[in-house]
Simulated assay, not measured.
Amino acid sequence: MAIKVLVVDDSALMRSVLTEIINSAPDLEVVGGAPDPLVAREMIKTLNPDVLTLDVEMPKMDGLDFLARLMRLRPMPVVMISSLTQRGSETTLQALELGAVDFVPKPKLDSLGGIESCRVEICEKIRGAYGSRPRVPVAFIAPSKPLPGEKSSGFAGRSGGSEGGAGLDKLLCIGASTGGTEAIKEVLCSLPEKMPGILMVQHMPEMFTASFAKRLDGLCSLNVKEAEHGEKVLPGTAYLAPGHSHLSVRRVSGGYVCELSRSEPVNRHRPAVDVLFHSAAKQAGANALGVILTGMGKDGAQGLLAMRQAGAWTLGQDQDSCVVYGMPREAAQIGALEEVAALKDIGARVLARLRGGERRGMRA
């Protein structure tokens, strides 16, 4: 039975294009197209779609307002159709916070190539949303950044976090995809300022990673930024792979540096989690910690296995707390995970490990 999709967009042309793209897949079917949220509300009642695609800037009711009401009254999988602009990326991140499962860039209508280039992605994101666990957003209060000179508790390494201490040898690597923006936010906001360097890969386009890093930086005690080629990995800082490049790590005298590459996609992704994890296995070995979060597909599984085989501690998000239990499941199936934990517990497990907690077997 085909997955039923309702397309919500104020542009008749865009509704037509999206309908053609979605209906070209044998397992997907557009059951209706709504020009605004008010019409969409009635269509949801009568057509009972499985997945909603939603534009943001529409008449009568803003897409974000509609999404907030929808997730409160009738939670369902929503895929945002987003414009690749600064404003569009910031709005999309707000939509993900409100409960949207995923997003895809709006197809470019100026050429057939622009439409064809996003055909596979749109259909895959809808399939992923259909298999996702609807997330009802809850009130969330993030820790504020400490004032200059203010102390914060955290991991300081065996030598108290001073230059050359054990803490500076440690490296935390995080990978995520579908549902990962909120998962990464929750993990980072549960960590204190005093942490080893953190490297992260989240599958998203270039403009979105810049906005995402900026948003995280304002929420977390840690400093968060897009990674730059050749920059030193500093404690208390989380580096996000830019959407145009793979992120890897290289060990140098006194620590690590970030390396960026625009080489071919891996697992159809650039940036790819596997690239980061494989480099951590090779360059950091047992000093690395690897965490794989919610996401569709298998990216990161082989790299995490390489990390574990190199002596790193590895952790996967559990099925119940994942929006899409794909990447962690693949990692679990090949023996890449040392532990499994609910999203709300991942920060605490990382801190316990850094503080010298005992190794434990995988926990359900």
Rank of each mutant, 00 (worst) to 15 (best):
A213D: 14
S248Q: 08
K225N: 10
G218H: 05
G218Y: 03
V233L: 02
P242T: 12
Y239S: 11
A213L: 10
E228D: 15
S245D: 07
A238E: 08
K225T: 02
E226T: 12
P242A: 15
P235N: 04
L216S: 08
S221Y: 08
L219M: 15
L216E: 12
K225V: 05
R215C: 15
H229Q: 10
R250G: 15
C220Y: 04
G218S: 05
K214G: 05
A227V: 12
K225P: 03
G230D: 09
G230R: 05
L219R: 13
H244C: 14
T237Q: 00
L240M: 13
V224T: 04
E226M: 09
N223P: 12
H246Y: 01
L240F: 13
G218F: 02
V233H: 01
L216Y: 10
E231M: 06
V224R: 01
R215N: 11
E228Q: 13
L247N: 10
A241Y: 10
G218W: 00
G236F: 00
K214L: 13
L219V: 11
L216C: 14
P242I: 14
L222N: 02
K214C: 07
P242W: 07
H229R: 05
P235I: 01
H244Q: 15
S248E: 06
K232W: 03
F212W: 08
G243S: 09
A227H: 09
E231L: 06
E231T: 05
C220H: 05
A227G: 14
D217Y: 11
Y239T: 10
S245M: 05
K232M: 08
S248W: 01
V249N: 02
L247Y: 03
L222S: 01
L234C: 03
K214A: 06
T237Y: 01
A238C: 11
R215Y: 11
F212H: 08
K214W: 11
R215H: 13
H244D: 15
A213E: 13
G218A: 02
N223C: 06
L234G: 01
R250P: 14
L247V: 04
S248R: 07
V224G: 00
Y239D: 05
Y239L: 15
L240T: 07
F212Y: 11
H229N: 09
R215A: 14
S248N: 08
R215D: 10
A213M: 11
E226S: 06
V224L: 13
P242G: 13
L222I: 03
C220S: 08
E228H: 11
H246I: 02
V224C: 07
V233T: 00
F212T: 13
G236A: 02
L234A: 02
E226K: 11
L234N: 01
E228Y: 14
R215P: 12
T237S: 01
V249R: 04
V224M: 10
D217R: 06
E226I: 12
G236H: 03
E231I: 03
K232T: 06
L240S: 10
L216V: 12
A241T: 05
E228V: 15
K214N: 06
L219E: 15
A241K: 13
V224S: 02
C220Q: 07
G230L: 14
